[in-house]
């Protein structure tokens, strides 16, 4: 390698075109050999006792000054990756789970906030009284007495109608004329006013998708399940939030004390 080496330090750098060795006639350096060569060549000649002494002196000074008691910053933590990665992924999973639930809860709550604050207060009152009347009202018949309030329609909405309209409500909301149709008007009436449709629908949809025993979700989710299915005797099997309520066949009218208690105050019929 003498020739090459004696020239190595003196010749000017010249970029090699990629196709120089395309014909394959030139020997190529084996990757492992190359890396070893480079490593050895570049690490060579690093021994300098004076430099080592300076470094060791600095160490002593720092040690004696108590610098070595400083805390570990993130950039100083070089523990093996596996350990940190595993831990981090567990934390990440948990964090994301919590975040997801939080966002979901916020979203659901936000739907409810469409309603008036009165409604919310009333709901809370309902919840409180629901707890009180729980034992009483749950047991006997699970029948929900229809509210005397706004429940009067010519033809009560079927449960399916209500849910379908609820789902579509979000997209229809803004277009004023759409809400004037009869079907929509039924929904609006059931909810006790256009402003309450959002909350009403939230409960309807929530009741449909929640399991029984979700009555902890405020007495309202239980009720919608009841009311929604009230005129479908067979459908009562799907009565979410109202376990054991399948005997609810007798209710034809649709009690509306579900979402908007201010429209149809029925504290007594709080059913869980």
């Amino acid at each position: 390698m003498g020739e090459r080496q004696s020239d190595g330090g003196l010749h000017s750098r010249r970029r090699v075109h990629p196709d120089d060795s395309a014909d394959g006639s030139r020997a190529t350096i084996e990757p492992a050999g190359l890396e070893e060569y480079l490593g050895a060549a570049l690490r060579a000649g690093a021994v300098d006792p004076a430099a080592e002494q300076r470094a060791t002196d600095a160490f002593r000074v720092a040690r004696d000054a108590g610098s070595h008691r400083a805390r570990t910053r993130r950039r100083d933590d070089w523990r093996p990756r596996e350990h940190r990665h595993m831990w981090r992924s567990v934390k990440t999973t948990a964090a994301m789970l919590v975040a997801g639930l939080t966002l979901g809860g916020v979203a659901v709550a936000a739907i409810g906030s469409v309603g008036s604050s009165d409604g919310r207060d009333d709901r809370h009152r309902q919840d409180a009284s629901a707890g009180a009347t729980d034992g009483a009202s749950r047991g006997p018949s699970g029948k929900l007495s229809p509210s005397s309030g706004t429940g009067t329609h010519d033809r009560p909405d079927t449960a399916k109608d209500t849910l379908a309209h609820c789902r579509a409500y979000e997209s229809v909301k803004g277009s004023g004329k759409a809400l004037e149709s009869t079907a929509w008007q039924r929904l609006v009436t059931a909810a006790g006013g256009e402003a309450n449709v959002g909350a009403y629908c939230a409960e309807q949809l929530a009741a449909q998708s929640h399991e029984p025993g979700n009555s902890g979700n405020s007495g309202n989710t239980a009720n919608p399940g009841n009311t929604a299915k009230s005129d479908k005797p067979k459908a009562n099997t799907g009565n979410t939030g109202n376990a054991g309520n399948s005997g609810n066949t007798g209710n034809t009218a649709k009690p509306t004390n579900v979402a908007k208690p201010d429209a149809s105050p029925n504290p007594g019929t709080k059913k869980k």
């Binding site: 430099a51 470094a55 720092a62 040690r63 070595h68 570990t72 933590d77 070089w78 523990r79």
Partner: peptide, 17 residues
């Protein structure tokens, strides 16, 4: 090396680290 010597106490890890 001055910085390494000073901050040695902060480091956490093995030889490769």
């Amino acid at each position: 090396w001055l910085e390494i010597a000073r901050d040695l106490g902060r480091f956490k890890g093995d030889g490769a680290g």
